[in-house]
Amino acid sequence: FHSKDEIRKLDRAILVEGYMDLVSLYQAGVKNVVASSGTSLTDEQIQLLSRFTKNIFVLFDADSAGQKAALRSIELLLKQDFEVKVIELPKGEDPDSYINKFGKEKFDEEVARAVNFLEYQTSQFEELGLFEDPSDMTKAIRELVRTLALVSDELKRNLLMKTISKKFNLREKLIESELNAALSQNKTRVETQSAKQVVKMETASASSEFNLATKYQAENPNEKELIRLLFSGDEKILGYIFDNVAVESFANLNYRKLADVIHDGWNEGKFSPADLVEKIESTDLKNFIMKLTLSDDSISRKWDELSFNGKIEKDTFEHAVDTVRSFQIFQIEEEIKQNNKRSSESKDERLQYELLLRNRELQDDKKAILGLKTKNEFDW
């Protein structure tokens, strides 16, 4: 889950399609890996990745569906100025099967043989026999040029244009003419989309501003860290959190849905990260998980230093205890705040008295939590 540090360190990420691929590669020591979670790569995921690297190695299944998904992902990545290479595994293999069968050393060799996006697309067209017939060949070359037009760096674009010209023994001027036409189409398309987006934003601005200001007003800042801990797959940590935090107490609806899925999995004895993601049907939630696990925003700076190898680490559990305590204190302080507001707005003396007594109980609870000393606690 904490791939971002390795991605930053190596300045490249390996993008896989399925979550099991991610888990298998990570467990084998390939830690600069992210997954699109079985869905088409989204602009939001790409923008998130760009915070850590601009170099992506695409590694999808070698079947027809995987190849099509790879080509779609390449186009999206090129539009966002990524350097894109493709890792091609032997036919019949996927990242999960390959790493389990051949190990990390052989996998690293496959990574070293990765080809640029243009070579990959050309090889796919060759396999389909599109260069055997003049009519098909024309369409295929135009498709290569259309992909090339997505590259924003003019120097790189011209060098790749020369590659196409040389490979197919065509005049550079001819390829350049096709490229200029594709660039013009891209510009028109972008301008049209921008105009539509402006209209959409203006239409929704009033209600959006209100919703953004109020939607997460009472969200507990410890919720994100609790979800990360729940996704550790550690039975001891899950048991402790669910013994002390109710699922319905999560204010953020996405966190609440995830906590509910994890709670169900925990009750069924299926709570590994892979099991949990398999239970999530919502594409939005799967994208949310990716955003969450790559996020820089950590409640505790200590969290990024914790080992994430699946073992029950002492400091990881103590971090869970600390996070639960912070969560509980926030809930208490939030209730006290709401009670004070109700009391000040009410003229009912009986209600004011009841709220006063309730706040005293809450203050006692808070003192008990702050004063709690167990062998599991740890001072950061």
Rank of each mutant, 00 (worst) to 15 (best):
S3F: 05
D5W: 09
E6T: 14
I7G: 01
R12F: 07
A13C: 13
A13F: 09
M20L: 09
L22N: 01
L25G: 03
Y26D: 04
Q27I: 13
V30E: 10
N32Q: 12
V34S: 06
V34F: 12
S37T: 05
G38W: 07
S40P: 06
Q47N: 15
L48C: 11
T53I: 08
N55H: 13
V58S: 03
F60V: 07
A62C: 07
S64K: 15
R72N: 10
S73A: 15
S73G: 12
S73Y: 02
I74F: 01
Q80P: 00
Q80K: 14
V84Q: 00
V86E: 01
E88V: 15
P95K: 08
Y98F: 15
K101W: 01
K106S: 07
A112F: 07
N116E: 07
Q121D: 02
S123N: 11
F125W: 09
E126W: 05
F131W: 06
E132Y: 10
P134N: 09
K139H: 09
A140K: 04
L144C: 08
R146P: 00
L148C: 13
L150S: 10
L150E: 08
L150Q: 04
D153Q: 12
L155W: 10
N158F: 12
K162W: 02
F168M: 05
F168T: 04
F168W: 12
E176W: 11
E178F: 14
E178D: 14
N186S: 08
T188W: 06
V190K: 15
E191G: 05
Q193R: 13
S194R: 15
S194Q: 15
A195V: 09
K196G: 00
E202S: 06
A206V: 11
S208W: 11
A213N: 14
T214L: 09
Q217M: 13
A218K: 10
E223M: 03
K224M: 06
R228I: 04
L229P: 02
F231W: 01
D234F: 02
G239P: 02
N244F: 09
V245N: 03
E248P: 03
A251I: 07
N252M: 08
N252R: 14
Y255F: 15
L258R: 06
G269F: 08
P273C: 06
I280A: 05
T283L: 07
T283E: 12
L285K: 00
I289T: 00
M290N: 08
T293F: 15
S298T: 11
S300C: 03
S300F: 13
R301T: 07
K302F: 14
D304N: 11
E305S: 10
S307T: 12
S307E: 13
E313H: 15
T316N: 02
F317E: 00
E318T: 11
A320W: 00
A320D: 00
A320F: 01
Q331L: 11
I332Y: 05
E335N: 08
N340P: 00
N340Q: 14
S346K: 11
Q352P: 02
K366I: 11
K373C: 03
